[in-house]
Nucleic acid binder design. Structure first.
Lengths: 117, 117
DNA sequence: GACTCGTTCAACCAAATGGTTGACAACGAA
DNA sequence: TTCGTTGTCAACCATTTGGTTGAACGAGTC
């Protein structure tokens, strides 16, 4: 789990962190402000934010003694790209299946694995 | 980590499992066949497949002594939906920012947090 | 300087994760 | 029925994860 994509997926595998992302679409917020919504310690929320930050989903600046958390939404596109790539490949294969089956009937070659690859 | 979405994200947080998904877009395959590509035991791959199955990303049927693994690509749409929902919300807020800033200049109210929420 | 607020760091803990090896189950073939 | 092939189950281990508490830090305020 060291590449970028793995970190992004792992970050969003936690419901609390997904909720944080959802909340941050409403605008930047401080850690304490965010922590109010959850039944866990401030430190735990801070840890979650560090994971999101490590994945590049979130950035933090300094504003006095506050550390406002900002959503970097473009990173989400990275995931969408990966997902859609294989989603589409699977779809295409599914669409081709009818043709393949028809071709198999034509010359009587019913080797399944050949059809799938 | 018990809800569906969490399981799907967590499943794809591992590079091996993402590669398995990628491979399966080429068509169904047996466990041993899949395991050849990785520098790990057959049992380890079997475990990975169980995780993918738990997330609903993969299903297995019985064909003689083989257990062909099949990709259930529609589940990927579940993720895309979640991602795009918040991706879009973030985008919209970003688009509105100019208007908000203009309004703030109008009546001289420069409270940042108000602008962001 | 002393105090408070918002946040982070450090140590600790239980549970989950990702891998290993060894045994065994299910099926087809000899 | 015995054998090889294909895959799962069980026990074990090291590391990571998600949470806790307590101490400390940085920046304004008194």
């Amino acid at each position: 789990m060291d590449d970028r994509l793995s970190r992004v997926f792992a970050a969003l595998a936690d419901p609390t962190r997904r909720d944080l992302v959802a909340r941050l679409t409403d605008g930047d917020a401080g850690v304490g402000e965010l922590a109010e919504r959850y039944d866990m310690s401030l430190q735990a929320v801070s840890k979650h934010l560090k994971v999101l930050e490590g994945a590049g989903l979130v950035s933090r600046s300094r504003d006095g003694q506050r550390r406002p958390v900002h959503l970097e939404a473009e990173v989400l596109d990275l995931m969408t790209k990966w997902i859609q790539r294989y989603r589409q490949r699977a779809e295409e294969r599914f669409d081709r299946l009818d043709d393949v089956l028809a071709a198999m009937d034509d010359h009587g070659d019913h080797e399944q694995r050949g059809a799938a690859s």
